[in-house]
Design a protein around this nucleic acid. Structure first.
Lengths: 179, 179
DNA sequence: ACCTGAACACCGTTCAAGT
DNA sequence: ACCTGAACACCGTTCAAGT
């Protein structure tokens, strides 16, 4: 948090450039050097700020990923039923928004490592709370795990990367099994 | 089918080398040049025989993919119930066997193009037959499509690429919804 | 006809040189 | 401290030269 203005400005520029490029061509297809060029810095600067692509991705999707945890708390308060489906819809929508995120998210959620890993952990905790409540109400099968729920939701999100179709139908089928 | 011995031998060597390398490091991580080197030929020879990686992949997984169609017919004859789940298990097992196949399979099954595409079409026809019979028996929800079934099965198979866990639980949850 | 392998373009990643 | 950008390794892909 030292090196004043230019470092901070470069970092912000990099995240912004990454967000744009990821949105345009997908997180997997985006070249790191292109991110740097778009941000107007050298490749070295990019690597200094973010040691790998996942770190950059984590920064780009970070806030909205945190938003999922907040959404869970809110749904528990306001939505007496159907909150689990609502939340999974939101999760899938979020993953789908960044093409190429599904694979990284799955890896991070599974191993829990890396900068995305810690964010995923928060998401999983939120899922666990929702799931527990849903199971109390009989709205979800009792043997389902939060990790499994996220795995399945991520898989469905991945589906629509190749499919171009909306994942609603997939989720319908999935939830008939979950409840 | 002209150019005699060496061409045929090279082709066979390439497929064999690809099968080995795909099994070792995954179809996505395997470098085309490495396949050529392992086969003892130049890169150009590889590209002459297979215009892209998908063509090579199609050749490697071809027979077992065709085997799925045969299995469907056999299950319809011998297995009075539970044949749909049996077949989907086999499909998932097959995709899981080659790490990196899931993504290619999904693309091919969706768009129907390329050398994998035609194989996938045969698989989908087999799935449609099984599904129709299962729906008659009330073992599958009536609004489910063969394409959707394959999409879901492929998604589950993809799950276990990152997870290292077996996909049985995922399929259990899925089928509770399907039936 | 078919094969070879050098060559090009591209991308991830590093690092010596600058300020 | 931080940035720059040349440089290296690697991989997909092509193609002129060979047989």
């Amino acid at each position: 948090m030292t090196g004043r203005t230019d470092a901070r400005r470069n970092r912000a520029r990099l995240v912004e450039a990454a967000r744009e490029l990821f949105a345009e061509v997908g997180a997997d297809a985006a070249a790191m050097n292109d991110v740097a060029r778009r941000a107007g810095v050298g490749p070295g600067t990019l690597w200094r700020h973010f040691p790998n692509k996942e770190a950059l991705l984590a920064e780009v999707v970070g806030q909205s990923l945190d938003g999922l945890a907040e959404l869970a708390a809110e749904l528990l308060r306001t939505e007496p039923e159907g909150f689990l489906r609502r939340w999974v819809d939101a999760l899938v929508a979020h993953i789908t928004r960044n093409r190429g995120l599904a694979a990284s998210f799955m890896r991070a959620a599974e191993h829990g490592e890396g900068p995305l890993g810690t964010r995923c952990h928060a998401v999983e905790l939120a899922a666990a709370e929702l799931l527990a409540r849903a199971q109390e109400l009989g709205e979800a099968r009792a043997d389902l795990t939060a990790a499994e729920l996220i795995r399945l939701a991520t898989a469905v999100a991945w589906t629509s990367e190749a499919t171009e179709g909306d994942p609603v139908r997939m989720l319908d089928v999935l939830f008939e099994g979950i409840l």
